[in-house]
Simulated assay, not measured.
Amino acid sequence: MLDQLIVMAAPTGVGVRDWIFSVAATIFAIVVVIRSVQYYAQREWGYLIGHIAAGAIVAVIVLANGSFMNVLKEIGNLILGTS
Rank of each mutant, 00 (worst) to 15 (best):
T82W: 02
A29P: 03
L78K: 00
V14L: 08
W45E: 12
V23D: 11
A25F: 14
I57P: 00
I20V: 15
F28S: 06
I79R: 08
H51F: 05
G15H: 05
M69K: 05
H51W: 07
Y39N: 06
V60R: 06
F28E: 13
I75L: 01
V37C: 13
V60Q: 09
I52Y: 03
D3T: 06
D3I: 07
I52K: 08
G81N: 08
N70S: 08
L2H: 05
M1G: 08
G15S: 08
Q38Y: 14
V7T: 04
V62Q: 05
T12A: 03
V71G: 10
Y39P: 00
V37W: 09
A41H: 11
Q42S: 09
L63Q: 00
I27H: 14
G50E: 01
I49M: 10
I52D: 07
I6H: 08
G13H: 09
Q4A: 04
W45F: 05
S83T: 10
D3M: 09
M8G: 07
A53S: 13
I34E: 14
Y39A: 12
E44M: 07
G76R: 08
N65W: 14
L78P: 00
A59K: 00
V31E: 14
D3A: 13
I34L: 13
G46A: 10
Y47I: 01
Y39H: 02
A9K: 10
G66D: 06
A24R: 15
I30W: 15
P11H: 11
Y40G: 01
S22Y: 15
Q42T: 06
G50N: 03
V7C: 02
